[in-house]
Design a protein around this nucleic acid. Structure first.
Lengths: 239, 239
DNA sequence: CGCGGTGTTGAGACCTGTCAAGACGTGTGG
DNA sequence: CCACACGTCTTGACAGGTCTCAACACCGCG
């Protein structure tokens, strides 16, 4: 159930069997949600964190004009709102992009967990800091990169993150976002996302059809995206 | 020396006198740096966190093209790299925009601090999550807001943050960034920042001269910026 | 007194947005 | 089995915000 989560943690840190047991023990309930549901609403007082078991979630901020901007995508193994443990209320929604299976960990339990295992506290602190590093990279993308580079960059990021939890086979992975979703990630219009994808396909850098993406030319795609995975902290130091 | 820091913490959470004493006791050295120095370099293995006592710092990411993008600004009372406590290496530089006074807290000391006072650990965890919330807002700014809105938004944000540490008098505050610095914050060119500032001045929403900013029409400026301070979490829940 | 950093201005180019229409595929109900 | 609705993808023409590339003004400071 939370194997992807442990995979993600262990990709970067040592987790003892006692810690693993405590984590497994902290899951309070597991449920399914449909696509396009709000899992956590901006402004609500939250009392638990949401661990994504299967499917895709996104953090979304709404603008007055009605357009939405995603600030992060989540894949299996991710906590979508671990930061709610300290913030208590979020300033963004968490929504499901696909049907999802989610587990929850009450804040109370998270508190026991981090007090009993300070090391685990630091591991989870790291995890929210990793989210922040992803935010920084997205800020740079939105501020400075062309549409082409942004699309390419997102595909590179998701490929690395999905690979960590065993969702990539031979540079190919399920990618359920519509072009409208992509536009909301990338700060573009869906029309322009469409044209940009066509160009990437024409250059034979990627294929993307039937909700499945394949990176055909990793080096060339990284080049276009100016992608450097350092911000994903694949080599973490012991905590 | 760290009064601004305590002011910032206490703006949102209760800090006991024991905790305060422990924080004060953790400062290992204080030094001055000139403007335009690199305080922490991307990729370096860090062993301490940098607490800004006086001046302005920025987190900067360099692009291959040579342009730089700031991902956050720091004012007195902020840790500029508290996330280095768990990340150990940063994927961005921390640079001084003005002459600064900085104090440092060794990671080792931070570890003792958070293990001895788990509550304080959560307060600092909150602090890095607040940085992440600021990152998210910046992502939205870069992705979706016009140049006018971005400039206005940054002024609104810094006014609130400076006010917390007592650096605002009657909507007026020192604002040492050059137009080039602003451009690097906002994902614009300095030429366009210039024209945008002129428009804001013409509309009598702000004044900005001699490195001092005044918000002349707060409501109108908030309107232009679509500024909602919720993301700054001025009302935090107890941890 | 010259110099480097900063601020200002103008003209033209270009990337991306806007608006609109249509194609395509899929599920639903008659 | 067909008709229809709906979401998604695609295409075209045009508009507009921001960038690029100068050049110049201003000013504090060595």
């Amino acid at each position: 159930m939370i194997n992807s989560h442990l995979q993600k943690l262990r990709r970067r840190h040592d987790i003892s069997t006692a810690e693993e047991a405590a984590i497994r023990d902290s899951i309070s309930d597991v449920r399914k949600v449909r696509a396009d549901e709000v899992v956590a609403r901006a402004g609500d007082l939250l009392s638990e964190c949401t661990l994504l078991v299967e499917g895709w979630l996104a953090r979304v901020k709404d603008l007055r004009s009605g357009v939405r901007q995603f600030t992060e995508l989540h894949v299996p193994g991710d906590f979508a709102d671990l930061h709610s443990f300290t913030l208590k209320r979020l300033e963004h929604d968490v929504v499901s992009l696909t049907p999802c299976t989610i587990a929850t960990v009450p804040h109370e339990r998270m508190r026991e967990l981090t007090e009993t295992f300070p090391h685990l506290g630091r591991v989870y602190w790291f995890s929210t800091n990793l989210d922040a590093a992803i935010h920084r990279e997205w800020t740079v993308c939105m501020a400075r990169r062309s549409a082409m580079a942004r699309v390419a960059h997102l595909l590179c990021e998701m490929c690395v993150r999905l690979d960590i939890v065993g969702r990539v086979q031979d540079r190919s992975f399920d990618f359920p976002l519509t072009q409208t979703d992509l536009a909301e990630c990338l700060g573009l219009t869906s029309v322009h996302v469409n044209r940009t994808l066509q160009e990437l396909r024409k250059r034979k850098l990627i294929s993307l059809e039937n909700r499945r993406a394949t990176i055909l030319e990793p080096d060339a795609l990284h080049e276009v995206a100016e992608f450097d995975p350092a911000y994903l902290y694949l080599e973490a130091e012991p905590l």
